[in-house]
Amino acid sequence: MATIDRHAVRTASAFAGVALVVAALAACATPPPGASVSTPPTTSSPPPSSAALSSPAPLSEDEATALVLPGACEDIYSDAMFAHLTATAPPLNDPGHTTPSTELAAGREVLDVAPSLRCTWGGPSEYGLSTNVTIVDAAQAASVEQAAVESGMTCKPHAEGTICRTWEDLFVDGELYATVGETHYFRDNGWVATHWTNFAPEGYTEDIVATLWPSLAPTE
């Protein structure tokens, strides 16, 4: 049950009484006929200061280049690359394609907790690839990149970030069984990881970088 604040009730009653007295005095103070009544001059509000009208502060370089996680796999490729993948390695996101986008233990730990978009091409077979576009903090990015270097991947600068690659041929009884590889790209809060098997489209990761970071893509 609600508790009544008796002090508030007494205060409200007191204000009500004061209001009645003020109203009565106002009625008695009506000027006689012919008397002039002066009104106080009106004042206008000062114009807003220039600071209030100024535009928002520009974004910092890090804020301007920060990656926003795409909403769909179609959004991470150029039209030409998407058409190529559709023609050469369908389907997109087959539920039977469960290969992770990296074999790096540090990378899998980050993928378990970080916001990420997973895109796969090809069915559950020895042909296709899987990619994750992931939002990472500085510590997570450094951990995965260090793991990539320690695993023997070749890393170099690319589009104001770092791209790392590795690949190897797998043999069974002396016969070539499959060629597998990984490519990783790190830039600010973004990490693009791809693991592929017998399917490595030329310029695949570079196309994703140019699509997600268009202002950072190389011009040559």
Rank of each mutant, 00 (worst) to 15 (best):
S143F: 05
G96D: 02
A141W: 02
R187A: 14
S116Q: 13
E109W: 05
T179K: 04
T99E: 06
C119Q: 14
A105H: 11
V172L: 14
N93W: 00
T88S: 10
S143N: 04
N189E: 06
D173Q: 11
T131F: 06
N93F: 03
H97W: 07
D169G: 11
T131V: 09
C155G: 08
H97V: 14
T131D: 09
E182P: 10
E145T: 04
G181Q: 07
T102W: 07
Y127K: 05
G128E: 00
G123N: 00
P124A: 01
V180W: 01
G107Q: 09
A141Y: 06
D94F: 02
R165D: 12
A106N: 10
I135G: 05
D112A: 15
T88C: 01
N132K: 11
V133D: 13
P115K: 03
E145W: 05
G107D: 14
T102H: 06
R165S: 13
L176E: 00
G161I: 02
E103L: 11
D112I: 10
V144W: 08
I163F: 01
A148Q: 12
S151Q: 14
Y127I: 02
W121V: 15
Q140F: 12
L170A: 14
G123S: 15
D169S: 11
G181A: 05
A148T: 05
V113F: 04
A138K: 10
D173K: 03
V149F: 07
W167S: 11
A147G: 12
Q146R: 11
V113E: 02
S116F: 13
G181M: 01
A139F: 13
Y127T: 01
L117V: 08
I163G: 03
T131A: 08
S151E: 14
G128A: 08
V110Y: 09
P115L: 13
W167A: 08
V113N: 11
T179I: 14
W121F: 14
P91T: 01
N189C: 00
V149N: 12
T88G: 01
L111E: 07
A105W: 04
P91F: 06
V144E: 01
W191Y: 05
T120H: 06
G122Q: 13
L176H: 03
A142T: 00
I135D: 10
A87D: 15
D94P: 02
L104K: 00
E182S: 08
S101T: 10
E160V: 07
W167T: 12
P115Y: 11
P115T: 08
A114S: 10
E126N: 02
N132L: 07
P91M: 02
Q146C: 07
V113H: 15
Y177Q: 10
P124D: 08
E175I: 00
V133K: 09
D94W: 00
E103Y: 07
W167P: 02
E182V: 05
T98W: 02
A139E: 10
P95V: 05
F171P: 05
F171K: 14
V113M: 10
